Simulated scan of single mutants.
Amino acid sequence: MKIITINSEYIKLDQFLKLADCVPTGGMAKALLQEGQVKVNGEEEDRRGRKLYPGYKIEVEGCGTFEVAAKA
């Protein structure tokens, strides 16, 4: 599991996918979500704007498993 550190209270899912290097653009993030390839805390997610907070776990098919962490 890879840890992705954020500097704010939360990060939106599409921004997270780019930060985690799973997709290069927001359009590709949208396609990935529509194909059902992303899970947030074990549940399939298709909303690009879903807010992710520290402690959330994200699984992306073909990219890996991640955890959101707050900057110390």
Rank of each mutant, 00 (worst) to 15 (best):
D21I: 01
G36I: 07
L33R: 10
D46C: 07
D14I: 01
C22I: 02
A69V: 05
I3P: 06
E44S: 15
F16E: 01
I4G: 10
S8D: 12
Q34N: 13
G62E: 09
L19Q: 11
E35M: 06
L17C: 11
D14F: 04
E61H: 14
M28V: 09
A20T: 11
F16C: 03
N7Q: 15
E9N: 10
V60E: 02
V23S: 01
I6C: 00
I58F: 04
E43P: 00
G42N: 02
K57E: 12
N7K: 15
A70D: 12
P54E: 11
E61P: 07
K39W: 09
A20Y: 01
T25F: 07
K30C: 01
N41G: 09
F16K: 04
G49K: 08
A70G: 08
L33K: 05
D14W: 08
R47A: 09
G64M: 08
L33H: 12
Q34P: 01
L17V: 00
K57W: 09
K12P: 06
Q34E: 13
A29P: 00
Y53G: 07
L33C: 06
T25K: 11
R50N: 15
I3N: 13
I4S: 07
A72L: 10
F66M: 02
I4K: 00
K51T: 08
G49S: 15
I58K: 00
Y53W: 14
R47C: 06
S8F: 08
T5I: 11
D46L: 04
E9P: 00
V40Q: 00
